[in-house]
Simulated assay, not measured.
Amino acid sequence: MKNRVIGIMGAMPEEIEGVVALLSNCVETTMGQRTYFSGQINGIEAVVVFSRWGKVAAATTVTTLIQQFNISELLFTGVAGAISPELKIGDIVLGKRLIQHDMDARPLMAQYEIPLLSKTYLESDETHLAIASKAINAVIENRSLHAVIGEQELLEFNISQPNLFIGDIASGDQFFSKNEQKENLKAQLPNVLCVEMEGAAVAQVCYEYKIPFSIIRTISDAADDSAHIDFPSFIKKISSKYAAEIIKNIFKIL
Rank of each mutant, 00 (worst) to 15 (best):
H101C: 02
E196D: 11
I140Q: 04
G90S: 11
I140H: 02
L129W: 10
P107H: 11
K88C: 12
L117A: 14
D173Q: 06
N191L: 13
L122E: 06
L189K: 02
V202H: 10
L87A: 08
K134A: 15
A105D: 05
C194T: 10
N184F: 00
V148E: 07
H128P: 04
A203D: 03
Q152M: 12
K210Y: 08
G150M: 06
D104T: 08
F165W: 09
E208K: 13
E208S: 12
R143N: 15
F213I: 08
E86V: 04
I92R: 00
E126C: 11
S160G: 07
R97F: 10
G172C: 05
V93T: 01
F175L: 09
N158I: 11
Y121A: 05
I89M: 09
M109W: 06
E198A: 03
D125H: 13
E196Q: 09
E141K: 11
N137W: 03
I140E: 02
L122H: 09
M197R: 03
Y207H: 15
D91S: 00
I215E: 03
M109E: 12
L154I: 08
N191Q: 13
A110G: 14
S214C: 12
E208L: 12
N142F: 00
L122R: 02
I159H: 04
A203V: 04
I83M: 12
R143L: 12
D125P: 13
D168P: 00
L122V: 14
N142Q: 14
Q152V: 11
E141I: 04
I211T: 03
M197T: 09
Y209R: 12
G90V: 06
S214N: 11
M197G: 03
S133R: 11
N179S: 13
I140D: 05
V195M: 04
P115Q: 10
D168S: 04
K96V: 04
E123W: 07
K119I: 09
Q111R: 15
G199F: 06
G81Y: 01
L87K: 10
S160C: 09
G172T: 07
